[in-house]
Write a protein that binds this DNA or RNA. Structure first.
Lengths: 145, 145
DNA sequence: ACAGATAGTTGTACATCTCCAATGATTTAA
DNA sequence: TTAAATCATTGGAGATGTACAACTATCTGT
């Protein structure tokens, strides 16, 4: 059990566990945004996705990992709040495009501001480590989008 | 807007966003463990916490960010599945200690195995970067526990 | 001994989410 | 042109979580 037994896979597992702890440990942020916006996290997620760019209800359902009936319901709710609106889809009259209203974009930005605020521990990192971390996470997240 | 405008805070925000994307992006893992264990993610979280070490219902409720009534209900459910059990608390006869049965520990380990499996992108990292990442995340997660 | 606080439980009401079936409008394929 | 498929919607059944109120047993401080 010397340091030489430390395989690539084992290191990855440790790093992964720590990453999960860092990101998921701060549940307070989740509660904070839910309280601030007065809607469920799922709806906030839907709104944030819509604010990133218009899409059909079907696409929204897919990206939220839910079914179309529930996507309809969630969009109904967001529309009743004046945050999103449905418009006709010129390319296919069966479907509808959902897009964020100015108020919706503002609300989504508010959510991003809260969720995007790094935890104190991250800010406390030495500049060198932080730069190095950002370089590595860029590589990790890079080919996902 | 030169590279010199890149402040510590801005770098931290980018890194944080990427960390969130890496960890939260893989929702499949969550669904996988829910399907594998046949119970909600919340209950899996409860079981995993109990398997880490016995605790009172009150402590469990606090750590799950829920209230005592619901903690009771979740423990009832886990107990009905034979995964956890309540024992008397010698220090305070009002409270009860919840601990995992052998079956519960096994199930929790199964969940940890699924959730703890690093995503392919992490394993694909060069050994140098991975080691560096692990060093930095250790520092980040270190003073949380 | 007594008053007040706390632990777990029971119960209720409600919001939220998942899953499935079915429908009208529209598009696509044969 | 006709049959099958797709889109959004409506509806319903049920699991899951959240938030309170109230109760009993027990502990703590005075």
């Amino acid at each position: 059990m010397t340091a030489h037994d430390d395989t690539h896979a084992a290191t990855a597992e440790r790093a992964w566990g720590q990453l999960r702890e860092i990101v998921l440990g701060g549940n307070e942020r989740r509660k904070e945004v839910v309280d601030a916006l007065g809607m469920s996290f799922f709806r906030i997620k839907a709104l944030r996705r819509i604010a990133r760019g218009p899409l059909t209800l079907r696409e929204l359902a897919e990206q939220l990992l839910t079914d179309r009936p529930y996507a309809t319901l969630v969009v109904d709710d967001l529309a009743a709040r004046g945050l999103v609106e449905r418009t006709a889809n010129p390319a296919d009259r069966r479907s509808k495009i959902v897009s964020a209203t100015p108020a919706g974009k503002e609300t989504a930005a508010r959510a991003e501001r809260i969720l995007g605020t790094p935890p104190p521990a991250l800010l406390a990192l030495p500049a060198e480590d932080l730069a190095e971390l950002e370089r590595i996470t860029s590589r990790l997240a890079g080919h996902g989008s």
